Every structure is written in structure tokens, then in C-alpha cells.
Simulated scan of single mutants.
Amino acid sequence: MTNTTHFGFKQVATEDKVKLVRGVFDSVAGQYDIMNDLMSMGIHRIWKRVAVQLSNVRKGDQVLDLAGGTGDLTTLFEKRVGKEGQIVLADINSEMLRTGRDRLIDRGLVGNIRYAQVNAECLPFEDNTFDCVCIAFGLRNVTDKDAALRSMYRVLKPGGRVIVLEFSHPVDKITETVYDFYSFKLLPKIGKIVAKDEDSYRYLAESIRMHPKQDDLKKMMENAGLERCEYFNMTQGIVAVHRGYKI
């Protein structure tokens, strides 16, 4: 019997999800930053700054930026770790990783940034390597989220932090109603016009609805071994930052 998982609202064979997600991000990589600004009216930049602030990353730290895409979080982390620290910008998608690398080089950010094409479920790093592991707007695309959280925990140093920045679930009915209308009626049309890809942005809306709710993700992080887990809602719960520690 074939194991299945969700790809948006569809059920697909588990082994096919990585390929399907790769197709989405291959398609949108070139317009990814422009779409982020349009979709969130620029607010995604505030969400990312809050996540980096909550990471408590300091000078000299080693940081893994998972699903790092076009490098927004890496750019913010680089300012904090300084030349004494290091960031690994990692993504499962080669097109996103290439776009991120090119943009960081164009910004003059070289020397303390490495690049790695990895699957979050089985990270190819030694135990106890990083002071912080951050995954922003990527966990919902992972096939086995529990395996990914365990893998993040393994590569984290004692005292280190896992930061999960992700679209989440609105905390009140009015926000939920408006958000549903925007997500399913307007967002795919914006994707069609700007990125020439309506289906990928319909998948985005569906994948957000299939992502665990705030308390459920907190429990998943605890089950992976993380302690002192907590979350911080932003924009009425449309986005949340989860934080957990390896003690």
C-alpha cells in the first residue's frame, strides 16, 4: 500500500511530495521576493526581523538558515554574527539556493556564508554544530515535519535555539474570514499576473491551511526534544514564531 501525504489539499504519494514542492519553487524563484512584498504588503520584512531578534543570535555564533531561499534571513543573521561567526544558507531547492547565493554575493556578503543543498529531514551536519537553527516559511513544505524537527534538534548545540517562522492560523473569526478571501480569491490571481503561475500560489494558500496550529506545532517541537518551547503570534496569528531550546 502506498503511503500518502498532503500537497496542499491534495493527497499524493509520500515519495512524490519533494518533487512537487521543488516544481513550485523552481517556478517562482525568479519572482519570489517581489511576490513576498506584494503578498504581505512588505510586512514579511518585519516578521523576519522579529524572528531574528527572538533568536538571540550573537557575534561569533554558528547559524543554520534552513529553507533560506533568497537569503533575507541570512542577511539579517550576518549582521549579528559578524566575521567571527558563520551562517549556512541551506535549501532543498537548487534554483532558490542559486538565487539566494547570487543576491548575497551582489550585496557583498562573502567570507562567512556557506551554501548547502539539503533535506531538512536528514541534515548532513555533525551533532551539536549550530547555536541557532532557523527555518522560515519552509516547515509547511516538509514532508515529515517530525523528522525535520528531530534533525534540527540533533545538529543544535546545547543551549542553542530552534526558530520556526511560519504562516499560521488567525486567532479571531474576522481575521480568518478576510484572510480566507484574500488567500483563495486574490492571491492566486496576483500570482498569475506577476509570476505567471496561478497554481503555485493556490498551493501556497492550501499548504498554510494544512500546517499545524500554533499549539500543535509547539507540542511537535517538545516531542522532538526541545524545551522551553513557546510561540509569538504576529498579525493576529497569520504568522507565528516558535522558539525552543536544546538544554
Rank of each mutant, 00 (worst) to 15 (best):
S27A: 14
G71F: 04
K17N: 04
D102C: 07
V57T: 15
D91R: 02
N93G: 04
K83I: 11
I87N: 08
L123V: 13
R58P: 07
S55E: 01
Y32I: 00
D127M: 01
G71Q: 01
D26F: 00
V52K: 10
I113L: 10
C122T: 15
D127T: 08
T74E: 01
G108V: 10
Q53V: 07
D16T: 14
S27V: 01
A90D: 04
A67I: 00
E126A: 15
Q62V: 14
N56P: 06
G82Q: 02
Q117R: 13
D131Y: 11
N128I: 05
S94M: 12
L73C: 11
D72W: 04
D72C: 00
R114V: 05
T75L: 14
V50R: 06
A51R: 06
D16F: 09
P124V: 11
C132D: 06
L76G: 01
T129G: 11
V133S: 03
T74W: 02
A136L: 05
N93S: 08
I87C: 13
N36Q: 02
E15R: 15
D61E: 03
K17V: 00
E78I: 15
G23Q: 13
E84A: 15
L66G: 03
A136T: 05
G82K: 02
A90P: 08
L104S: 05
R80D: 08
E15F: 12
R107P: 04
M96S: 02
M39Y: 00
M39D: 00
D106A: 15
E15S: 09
D91V: 04
T74N: 01
D33T: 07
G68Y: 00
N56G: 14
D102V: 08
L66R: 04
A120E: 12
D33N: 13
L104W: 12
L64D: 00
F125T: 10
A120C: 09
D127R: 02
K83F: 04
G42E: 03
D61Q: 09
T129M: 13
F125G: 09
A51M: 01
V118L: 10
I113M: 01
L123E: 11
F25K: 09
T129W: 08
L54Y: 11
A51F: 08
L97D: 09
D72V: 00
Q117T: 11
V88T: 15
E84L: 11
V18R: 10
L66H: 03
N56F: 12
R49G: 15
R107V: 01
R58Q: 15
C122F: 15
R98N: 14
M96T: 04
R114W: 02
A116D: 09
V81Q: 12
D91F: 02
Y115G: 06
L20H: 05
D26W: 00
R58K: 14
D33R: 07
R45S: 13
Y32M: 00
M41D: 12
K17S: 03
V118Q: 07
G111S: 06
S94I: 13
L89D: 11
Q86A: 11
N36R: 09
S94T: 13
F130I: 02
I46Q: 06
R114S: 12
N119W: 07
N36M: 07
P124F: 11
M35Q: 05
V57A: 13
L89T: 06
F77D: 03
I87M: 13
S94R: 14
G85W: 07
H44T: 09
